[in-house]
């Protein structure tokens, strides 16, 4: 799953300017699959996300369960798969067999007990361990705000600089 203009992004702001102007438009992506249990169960939230979409780009909002059920039928080329957190990304990789060439870390913002990795990327010990699970599957994990900005490779040596990761 490496050649079809497919982006798998983790971003706690979900659909916003960096996503629509920094990824969808320059890569001419045609669809966004937003996999998020909270959004998919809330019709008002779905409507609000629809209003954030650029013209002519399809938005599909699915729960994790719906995505797991449908993913074999979904054509991911020319699309962006967007999730709110690393835990959901791990679950999509493990349960749905979606193994992208790389996973893009967009913004994961500060809250208590998280460490600053980059100005827009704060990770807890548990999230760092989740990233290691993705690395074990052979998936590259890169932090990058928009598609033409410099990527920061998040690998084991990088994570170990921040400590507190279990060796699982």
């Amino acid at each position: 799953m490496g050649s079809e203009n497919f982006i798998f992004r983790i971003d706690d702001r979900l659909i916003h300017g960096q996503v629509t102007l920094g990824w969808v438009k320059p890569l001419a992506l045609e669809k966004i699959y937003l996999v998020d249990d909270a959004c998919s169960g809330d019709p008002l939230s779905c409507r609000l996300w629809e209003t954030s979409m650029p013209p002519k780009v399809e938005l599909h909002i699915l729960s994790k369960e719906m995505f797991a059920r449908e993913c074999q039928k979904i054509k991911l080329e020319n699309s962006l798969l967007l999730v709110r957190n690393i835990e959901t990304a791990v679950s999509i990789v493990s349960d749905c067999g979606v193994i992208p060439e790389y996973i893009n870390l967009g913004g994961i913002h500060y809250c208590e007990s998280k460490k600053e990795i980059l100005p827009w990327l704060f990770l807890s010990a548990s999230e760092m361990n989740d990233i290691k699970k993705l690395l074990c599957k052979g998936i590259r994990v890169v932090a990058r705000a928009v598609c033409n900005s410099k990527e920061v490779i998040i690998d084991r040596p990088f994570l170990e600089k921040f400590g507190e990761c279990d060796e699982r």
Partner: peptide, 8 residues
């Protein structure tokens, strides 16, 4: 702000 979450 740059490091502010959408929820905050």
């Amino acid at each position: 702000n740059e490091n502010e979450s959408a929820d905050d």
